[in-house]
Amino acid sequence: MDESRKRTNPSSTPAAIVSVLTSDDLLGEILLRLAFPTHLIHAAAVCRRWLRVASDRALLARFRARHPPPLLGFYSVSNYIPKFWRAPGRHPPEIASAIRRAASLLDESGGGLVTDVVDSRGGHLLVNFGGRDAYDEAMVVSPLLLPTSSS
């Protein structure tokens, strides 16, 4: 497994890379400067330690303050027909994919069974499931965290 170490590291500073990666403070400062939450998620997958640093509550609070979450859109319901209104304008790909996700809850791929969006908090939605004639069932869903299905 050590064979990969032969790559790229100039012999003068083999220790430096390790040093950079072993200080949590330093890593946190780097992660804070990523531009989008998606970048932070990619970084979190790099290894266990990065996941721990990227999941730190204080760091996430700072990240949020630095990069306020954009409005992706909003849900409205009339006559049992819920609709997602995308935030207008052009969005960078990182945001556009989140918007697609939020909208997909209400398409066929999302089941098409949501009859009411009651409330939302922190990316979670309280919805009613069931057809017009069926008995509705309240449920909490997180559109951004739904497993990728057909789309």
Binding site: P37, I41, H42, A44, A45, A98, R101, T148
Partner: peptide, 11 residues
């Protein structure tokens, strides 16, 4: 596993 869980971030 992480990439699967956060699928939307990789679309």
């Amino acid at each position: 596993a992480h990439m699967l869980e956060y699928g939307w971030a990789y679309e």
